[in-house]
Design a protein around this nucleic acid. Structure first.
Length: 357
DNA sequence: TCTGGGGTCCTAGGACCC
DNA sequence: TCTGGGGTCCTAGGACCC
């Protein structure tokens, strides 16, 4: 099999949620805009989902507690997350992108990978194509995006983040290691806060440090992930661009406005979550076998507790009853609960479904 | 800084079967 | 009565993604 050179795009919409809101509300132009939890005059719970560049000037970042954002910038326009709208816009954008690629993979609500290997003959043509895509997205949606181009998904994704907003960064194969070396290890996919810290503990800060590290040292410390990190640090990633397979689980959870040890209140919330999950299950015509609940106490200690039923079901009553049963062990008068959640999984597969008919 | 909500994947131990 | 090796499923927890 010949190792054909690939050309991969990663496209990332610029501060998507706030960009959509600004488009819908021209009066927000020039103002800091923050989409996320209700700040409640600084007493709100939850986090910033997205903020625009004006808000970033105040030090606001996504993922930051909303109460902190309020301290930094109380004059911002604060908006709740309007998922329905963002999903609609996202679908329209994905339809534009899909037609430019041989293989397409949506990544979250506002990102996508495109394998354009057969559409262009080299990186110069790829760059022209990227400009064309950006122009069409802007034309049709009045939204900007950043694109990274490289020979694999890993580097394309890092490249799209390199110059934001409105960026276009090309990293050809020969430049990959040089491009990656000075960047913090955290920029690699799957290296999050914890792994970053563990790497720092052994003196690894940049991707270059990681690339120089002995592979066996990494695999001893991090197992399979260590081997993977070593490859990534050298810019090696052979994973294919492919449309996501079917859904594996459906869940809903809720953080209470105030931590509570009121059993009725908790069970009531649990029932409502079960109903929401069930609605989704019904809409997608799924049958499930496993029910899992999640509990987070006021100290953030979090537990999951699940049960696989001896039968396959799609009934709300089964879901509610199982969730309540699973919850019992966690209802303690001496512990306040911060969050509860309900998840269903272990869906019956298409083949099994056919076999049963 | 006092930490959302929706997901996926991995690991490790244990049950159970042959 | 103290003992294997493989396979699969289940459960709980944790890290990570957007």
């Amino acid at each position: 099999m010949s190792e054909r050179k690939r050309i991969i795009f990663h496209l990332d919409m610029d501060h998507f949620f706030t960009a959509v809101e600004e488009r819908e509300h021209p009066e927000f132009k020039g103002k800091p805009v923050i989409v996320g939890a209700d700040p409640k005059e600084g007493k709100g719970r939850g986090v910033v989902s997205t903020c625009n560049y004006e808000a970033r000037k105040f030090g606001v970042r996504s993922g930051m507690p909303i109460s902190r954002a309020w301290k930094l910038c109380s004059e911002a326009v604060y908006l709740p997350i309007n998922y329905e709208l963002y999903i609609k816009v996202s679908n329209e954008i994905m339809d534009i992108l899909r037609k430019y690629s041989d293989k397409f993979e949506q990544w979250g609500i506002d990102e996508a990978f495109l394998d354009v290997s057969s559409k262009v003959k080299d990186f110069a043509e790829a760059e022209t194509l990227a400009h064309k895509i950006k122009a069409e997205v802007y034309d049709k949606q009045k939204l900007t995006c950043s694109i990274g181009i490289s020979s694999n998904k890993l580097v394309a994704k890092i490249a799209s983040d390199f110059q934001k907003p409105g960026g276009l960064t090309v990293v050809q194969e020969e430049q990959v290691e040089k491009f990656l070396a000075p960047l913090p290890a955290r920029k690699l996919l799957w290296i999050g806060r914890k792994t970053e810290q563990r790497l720092a503990d052994i003196g690894i800060k940049t991707i270059g440090d990681l690339a120089r590290c002995d592979r066996t040292v990494l695999s001893e410390a991090f197992g399979v992930m260590g081997t993977q990190m070593c490859l990534m640090a050298h810019g090696i990633d052979r994973s294919e661009v492919e449309e996501r397979s079917r859904i594996k689980s459906i869940s809903r959870d809720v953080t209470f406005e105030k931590d509570t040890s009121d059993f009725d209140c908790v069970l009531q919330a649990l029932d409502e979550l079960s109903e929401e999950v069930h609605e989704d299950v019904a809409r997608q015509q799924l049958h499930f076998k496993t029910v899992t609940i999640r509990v987070r106490y006021e100290n953030f200690e979090t537990h999951t507790h699940g049960k696989t039923l001896p039968f396959i079901t799609n009934r709300l009553e089964d879901l509610k009853k199982t969730a309540r049963e699973l919850m019992r062990a966690y209802l303690r008068s001496d512990r306040k609960i911060r969050l509860v959640g309900v998840r269903v999984s272990n869906f019956i597969s298409g083949e099994k479904q056919k076999a049963l008919m």
